[in-house]
Design a protein around this nucleic acid. Structure first.
Lengths: 355, 355
DNA sequence: CTGTTAGCGCATTCAT
DNA sequence: ATGAATGCGCTAACAG
């Protein structure tokens, strides 16, 4: 019923071993023989049995890419970029040669699901795993993930972090591409401070996430430098999920707490969009009455009205690099860790506060 | 070195078969035995060998989700929704029970890569495949894809279309969830016509794609109904990729061709954002001078300024339903085909043309 | 309810 | 450069 390697061998009048060698191309085979085998493959419409192959070879061509939320372009861009380096462009025949199968796994930001996916990938003997986005800082989960990653690495799976800080220990296990969230956050708020803002609200992401904490710390650093004795930064910080609605509601709350607010900084661009809507619904103008700033510089941010001041992260480049690292096409950075710079993008949504 | 099922069996003092039955849970096993086995699994930190399991069972727990562009939330939302129905929430142990591994494959809209991914999934003996987004209409590729899908279906892989029109034949192979792109496009333009617009530009997607064609046809139907002898609809249609830049440039071009344009309809919301930017850069106001409309109702569309009139597609619901169909959790619609309604969302970006 | 027996389809020794 | 033989780790009959 289903065509096997043995069928191909019979038709090409060679041994199964030879067919295997032709298909994997990692062993010398006479050109004429190869020719014959390839023709038999096409004639019979043979498709390699992945599981059998993986079982025998004790390794598979699966590469996992873990993301927190695939509906968010922040992750979509990185994941898509990584996949371009892994899937290979194909040869146009649809025959599928030595390509890896890059697969994206949506954890929803839940550490449990993250672990489950890692186990699933371990079960599949994945060739590599790329983990994108910030981590949850709960020590229990940290330890569980570390242990799991150690096992994966031990089994020969390459591990790459993308937009995630390196593990406390175990730097040798993993190549990590970390974004400079703290520096970006600091420079963004410094920009506002330099414009004259002193009452700045901050809509943070979910607590316990590294990304949230780093961006917030950068913001607070800048605020403290500007007004060492202000001390009410906590009062002007609200946490919530990384979505539009959170930005909307948190901004209303901030405006309630501090009607004299002159600027709102959001944890990311999506949240910033919600913040903009809230500011407007309160009858305030951007940036004349309230400045608004985001983070990430997602594609839509430049089209906001006014265009959003934000911090640009080179998501595509980082994702592509992570993909290359996962494939072993590129050498890991020194010490296994590289920090990716974040660039301040000043646009129309920020301006000096009202005289 | 690596723990196998036999090791677990030995430690639990049962046969390998019993361990297998416990793990797969599809066969009666005494509670006490199960207990013992599970403990041995935990003690030994055993992880099932996926390839071996798939080889023996002649089927795997992989489910593929094909998307055109994962950086686009249109696909991200559907893919994420499908994954919620497939991956299962996990039991929180990270142990990974009977879950399927839902994997997202990014084709970049290229039929070749689509074929390659299908071959890769075929090679893995995937349990199901969900194909999202419109198809390319080239008959050669259509035939190649059809043939490949037939083989997959033949091998027991369930096939589900999501946001893609059904195959010309072979309805029995596939459950198809198709969006009412034509109807949505028609109602959107009818709305503009009813406001009084007659010179309406259209920024279409890439030619040869079903989604592009259906939306455009809906638009043209509505235009022709409004002005049967206008006949210059072609002149006011420009094709381009589904991205912001295309919307920007095409709109400038349309404004050049027809300075008297009172409205621009874009192939989707992302394109519409670019169109808005172009309109503004030309010194025109939205909607007073030019109305702009999009399609899809992506999350950011309501936050555009003014909020974007568009056509809402229930992307999450459709993706989730596709996921359930792929898992066999839900029965296919009658005839294998369901059309998903598209809802007109009238917001601030459209208004009557200037008196 | 549990144990025994046979492969699943391929990659890889080891020969030649 | 090629063929023959072996086993990867598991599931699925078939017994009992």
């Amino acid at each position: 019923m289903t065509v096997t390697l043995a069928d191909v061998a019979a038709r090409a009048r060679v041994s199964p071993a030879t067919v295997s060698r032709v298909l994997n191309g990692n062993y010398p085979v006479a050109a004429s023989t190869r020719e014959r085998v390839l023709r038999a493959v096409d004639d019979l419409d043979y498709v390699l049995n992945g599981p059998a192959s993986s079982l025998a070879a004790a390794t598979s061509d699966l590469v996992g890419i873990l993301v927190n939320d695939i509906a968010d372009p922040f992750f979509g861009i990185m994941a898509g970029a990584a996949q371009t380096q892994i899937g290979g462009p194909g040869d146009g025949s649809g025959r599928a040669g030595g390509e890896k199968l890059a697969v994206i796994c949506n954890t929803g930001g839940s550490p449990e699901r993250e672990l489950t996916y890692l186990t699933l990938l371990q079960r599949q003997r994945a060739a590599a795993v790329v983990i994108t986005g910030g981590a949850v800082e709960d020590p229990l989960h940290q330890a569980a993930i570390s242990a799991k990653l150690a096992k994966l690495a031990d089994a020969g799976t390459r591990i790459v972090f993308c937009g995630r800080p390196p593990l406390p220990e175990g730097e040798t296990l993993v190549a990590a591409l970390a974004f400079d969230n703290r520096g970006g956050g600091r420079r963004l708020t410094e920009h506002l401070v330099s414009l004259g803002h002193r009452r700045v609200g901050y809509v943070a992401g979910p607590p316990e996430r590294t990304t949230t904490r780093h961006r917030l710390e950068g913001h607070l650093d800048a605020m403290r430098a500007a007004a060492p004795d202000a001390g009410d930064a906590d009062r002007l910080t609200v946490h919530g999920p990384y979505d539009r609605r959170s930005g909307y509601e948190a901004t209303l709350e901030l405006l309630r707490r501090e009607p004299g607010l002159t600027a709102v900084v959001a944890a990311n661009d999506t949240v910033a969009l919600g913040a903009c809507a809230a500011v407007r619904d309160r009858g305030l103008r951007i940036p004349q009455d309230v400045s608004v700033a985001g983070f990430d510089d997602l594609p839509f941010s430049v089209d906001a009205v006014p265009a959003l001041t934000t911090v640009r992260l080179p998501l595509f480049e980082a994702g592509a690099r992570a993909g290359r690292l996962a494939m072993g096409k590129e050498n890991p950075p020194p010490g296994g860790i590289a920090t990716i710079a974040a660039e301040l993008m000043i646009r129309g949504s920020t301006a000096p506060p009202r005289g």
